[in-house]
Design a binder for these strands. Structure first.
Lengths: 138, 138
DNA sequence: TATACAATTTAGAATCATTCTAAATTAAAC
DNA sequence: GTTTAATTTAGAATGATTCTAAATTGTATA
């Protein structure tokens, strides 16, 4: 997923009008190998000369989440983080440095049973602790 | 875990001074089979004639989380929810009615590998969708 | 039992991420 | 080209949580 024409096609396939702002945001998310906050996305785009309104960032990201392009992650009660949806994966959150590590998870193989579940739309796994990098530092 | 003397012993074993307010809150959490918000805890205790300050509720719950008695759950960017820690379990969240269903999970059997993890302190699983009750209603 | 000291509680102010609002701009349709 | 709808925008409003500083309670010591 590289070119703007591909991103345009993706947005249109989801029924989203591909405005310049939305394309910039989607392009950013595809090239960002983090789980950025709104503040970071906003600042990075501004630094690149694309001064979107913060409301636009919120609007577009929320729309992308609704359409299943992104996932929103609430790690704590500070800023939300956004995750581009490639394939199902779990998260390991380092409580020391704040890093978030992705790891593929075969959810079907886990075979978790939730008797009360009528239908399942999204599955998330979060492990928390101290990452190796921080542990080595002591 | 029923009597105040048992709750007192639990708090003391965690190095927490068992004030009346803390005992009331802990007692509430042990008898509450939900995942209540601060607002609900505050309102329910007030209705029982125990008008704690909201700051006290926040202070005590935060302390309990730090000491490993409770777990805080951030489902979305609205109010946090608190979960009494009995044993490891997963959560199914109904996106229709907001209900949260617990289900035991044997995390060790899942055998998830996070190569970057130095040590793991907490493991969480969240599934989201529509619960059977809501699905039957249509 | 009185006094000093520390911890806890409290009300209300402050903070800050997010949402809302209403105007301005842009794109689309006729 | 004009009208209409959608999008963007800045700034105000909201609301959960945290902070602050004073009041209260509990504890230790004389």
């Amino acid at each position: 997923m590289q070119s703007f024409s591909e991103l345009t096609a993706l947005l249109e396939s989801k029924g989203i009008k591909p405005s310049l702002q939305r394309l910039l945001l989607l392009d950013y998310m595809y090239h960002c190998h983090e789980h950025p906050t709104v503040e970071k996305i906003y600042a990075d785009l501004a630094a690149q000369g694309h001064a979107l309104s913060k409301a636009t960032v919120y609007n577009a990201l929320t729309l992308f989440v609704q359409k299943g392009i992104l996932r929103i992650v609430h790690l704590d009660n500070s800023e939300a983080r956004y995750d581009i949806l490639t394939n199902d994966h779990g998260h390991f959150v380092c409580e020391c440095c704040g890093a978030i590590y992705d790891e593929p998870v075969d959810f079907d193989q886990l075979n978790l049973q939730f008797p009360e579940a009528g239908s399942i739309r999204q599955r998330d796994i979060f492990y928390r602790g101290v990452c190796k990098r921080c542990k080595d530092k002591g």
